[in-house]
Design a protein around this nucleic acid. Structure first.
Lengths: 235, 235
DNA sequence: CGGGATCTTGACTGTCCTCAAGTGCTGTGG
DNA sequence: CCACAGCACTTGAGGACAGTCAAGATCCCG
């Protein structure tokens, strides 16, 4: 390793604890002040349409759903939770629509503002790049889910992933109905319902009310998702 | 639009015709010389394992396959053709392996070198970001394919996509067997074979030899892929 | 020409989708 | 407080599509 100072892709620095959003990893408190001063925070009600940010959208609170129009009807495509970045859209991105799930706060930034910010805080660019990589990873994992998993494994995977991304809460508040869960998993409403009930009957989750799921035995949920390395079949 | 000059995310410039790799879009001939002087060009034989580049890998000639290990056995996951960029890997990327398909030339660049390059050629950073966005788009389209398409539509989609990405050649040389085609599409070898033969019987493609597909009627192939907007069912 | 790998095809099975009926929430109005 | 309507959800029966298993055909190589 040479010691040249690269402003764009610098090595990891330890300035802030790794608690906050990944976008702000490694930023000093002073940097954060600069960022917040430059960005706008927008608030949305449950179900309200969200304007897609120019380049950067960070969910500060609540959650966002992204719906895609394919074959006529819109269908739920992805979720973005608190602390996560909205998937950016490139020049050739399919049209999707954003809506708030519950009361949601979104930190956004104009393209030009972000450019200025990233000039003074190079670390921001590195973080954005890493987040893009993460999103690519996530998309690939989802490809694995849709291409190679059974309905039961898909449901378990989705539940565990949401459980994990929401920080292992007592109850995960989806705000999604069976049809929407099915859309994410490439399943019908009926299949989604059946799989969810099967997990409930197995004692892995409980369904106290509509749109709410409690994970009772996380290990067994993870096991059911087929993502544990021990499950690999012998060649 | 204000006229502030942003070195990182500048507006489109027209310096070179849009023929070459998207990574070099908008670069002057002089810039290109700088890039090629800084990067290494590696040559691989058919089937040879490819060292994953640090940050940047551009396929100058040939093609690369990327295999992922899930549930024990490796399976073909994605293809990168001439002029395209290798999907970058983030801090949390699943382990994948790269192999050349046919004689392949790969332009690579050290992380530090790329940093230096992008300092002197800011446009390079913009292009890289746009390419990342494109890859995210592609991953999402593939999610759509795996989640919502039938076997027949998947096969047609794959063929048309490869046909398009290879520049509409007379014959597309896959270099893949039925099992590998199936892996990409979330199908078995037998299903892949059946779907290919169905397209052949329908006169949409011809299969002159193993690993080779000729697109006879591109329109009908595109139609079979289910990606034409006219096909959208009325709500 | 022969051997091995790849591909094709058929019969059967299983998973998930479709269609349909029924159940249980939730909010509203009497 | 109850009746009711509307909606989401559940459950079942049957069917379609893709997977599995197995046999046979074809190609490619030496």
């Amino acid at each position: 390793m040479n010691a040249i100072n690269h402003t764009w892709l610098e090595a990891d620095a330890k300035v802030l604890p790794a608690t906050g959003p990944a976008l702000f990893r490694g930023l000093s408190a002073q940097d954060m002040d600069t960022v917040y001063a430059a960005c706008q925070s927008e608030t949305y009600r449950d179900g309200q349409a969200v304007r897609r940010p120019d380049i950067l959208g960070l969910v500060e609170d609540g959650a966002l759903r992204e719906d895609m129009d394919s074959d006529g009807a819109p269908h739920l495509f992805s979720l973005t939770f608190r602390g996560e970045l909205l998937a950016p859209y490139g020049p050739r991105t399919r049209a999707t629509r954003l809506h708030a799930i519950g009361a949601t706060r979104l930190l956004t930034c104009e393209r030009s503002t972000f450019c200025d910010l990233s000039l003074s805080i190079p670390r921001l660019r590195l973080n954005l790049l890493n987040l893009l990589h993460d999103q690519l990873d996530a998309a690939r994992n989802w490809q694995l889910l849709l291409g190679r998993k059974t309905a039961a494994e898909r449901m378990a995977s989705l539940l565990y992933e949401v459980y994990e991304r929401q920080g292992f809460p007592d109850k995960i508040a989806f705000g999604l109905n069976r049809a929407e869960i099915g859309q994410m998993l490439g399943l019908t409403m009926e299949s989604a319902s059946r799989q969810l009930r099967a997990l409930e009957k197995a004692g892995i989750v409980s369904l106290p009310s509509r749109g709410t799921v409690c994970v009772v035995t996380p290990q067994r949920l993870l096991l059911a998702s087929g993502d544990l390395p021990e499950q690999r079949r012998v060649a």
